[in-house]
Design a protein around this nucleic acid. Structure first.
Lengths: 220, 220
DNA sequence: ACAAAAGTGTTATTCCTACACCCATGC
DNA sequence: GCATGGGTGTAGGAATAACACTTTTGT
């Protein structure tokens, strides 16, 4: 579960009380039930940690199956990436907290590797899909969105170019409203929202397109 | 397991003799052993069907976990994509055969869905990685490579442009040799090989690059 | 008026597709 | 010579990063 908090990409983890790996931080998860598939199971596990209605996107990452990745009984994990918009502040249990993804202290088992996979996937999909909808608040200025993208991608992002890229792909739509300027003044920023609340690939193939598509498909 | 055969993308399947799903065609696979991870297990399962040295690339696709995807005991499958170069012709057991991916007759269980996922993944990765190395023979002409890409992508591919795209990315290297012309004559074609035998992302991010990279990273 | 923040115009660069043209071989 | 297939040159369209410039607010 990832979220932008205080301008930093953070991951939700809980501190293990009992062996194995006591005191270390683990990702939320649990056993697969007999009557559920892994996606359903993830939703159920999350419900124990946060309000699931605040989770904007969930997707499968990969299977982690090294024979002794967890001491004791063999466990095979199907890792997921979950995203919470930055304007949500879900209540979490006492043993659970958010940590910057770059500095998850003392990760349990192979969970550092899983966080790495999640970060990579997020970075990639921000580039070629509208996945930003799952990180951004409901309404936002381009400035705010720029900060979110920069935090998630790990490098500076230009507000000018971000604006244009997302506009060309019809990913954003203006709400019509304006955000009031800060105490130092400045032009009021226009508010935007994501046009669609679900994942859409906006930049399918950079090369080797089918003939007749000189550029990306036009907006219908 | 996918391979280009007779200019068509084909999938390796075996015909089930016994229930469940007798007579239907299933993908190779089997149970995970106690001392192996899923990647190791896949290699082992494949060894029973083909000479594993002929498999050029294997990667994880996704977990299929619907509670009743297979009758009887609950089974959770980690699906993989495997690729065999077109110049290999592995010996296969009597119940096992290659079928065009578009026309796998009577797929067992949810295997049609898995084949679909494999095809999608292959298509995507051909565009932004050097994955062609796992489909093409050791040495080939651009014409041949064009046919392979067209078969895998499912749409026509221009030899001219394929040549240039792969050249720009330094994915191909000339062997120096020429292929003899066919009976109708024509200029002899230059032979190429893939420069690297392992997966490499050649076209990382179309947009939202870090500052300072006006275009794709230069070749070192 | 001036500083600050937001947004638009414009340019340079690169990439990609399409198509015309040139090259080397067999008959 | 000429048909056939291979390869190169080149032009047109489009996308993106960078940066200059304009707009709108608060002090």
């Amino acid at each position: 579960m990832l979220q932008i908090r205080d301008g930093v990409l953070q991951v939700l983890a809980w501190q293990r009380a009992r062996p194995p790996d006591p005191g270390r931080w683990a990702l939320p998860g649990g056993l697969l039930g007999d009557d559920e598939d892994v996606a359903t199971s993830v939703r159920r596990q999350l419900a124990e940690k946060v309000d699931v209605r605040e989770v904007a996107h969930v997707e499968q990452l990969a299977v982690f199956s090294a024979p002794h990745r967890v001491p004791g009984v063999r466990r095979i994990a199907t890792a997921f990436l979950g995203l919470v918009p930055s304007d949500a502040d879900p209540a979490v249990p006492a043993d659970t907290a958010w940590h910057p993804v770059d500095a998850l202290p003392d990760p349990a088992f192979d969970h550092a590797e899983i966080v790495e996979a999640a970060r990579d996937r997020l970075r990639a999909k921000l580039s070629y899909t509208n996945l930003g909808f799952a990180l951004a608040p409901r309404e936002f200025t381009i400035s705010t969105l720029r900060e979110h993208y920069a935090a998630a991608l790990g490098h500076p992002v230009s507000a000018t170019n971000l604006q244009r890229v997302l506009a060309r792909r019809a990913v954003l739509e203006p709400t019509g409203a304006l955000a009031p300027p800060g105490p130092a003044g400045g032009r009021p920023a226009a508010l935007f929202r994501f046009a669609e609340p679900t994942l859409r690939v906006t930049d399918a193939f950079a090369v080797l397109r089918p003939p007749g598509e000189h550029a990306r498909p036009a907006v219908p």
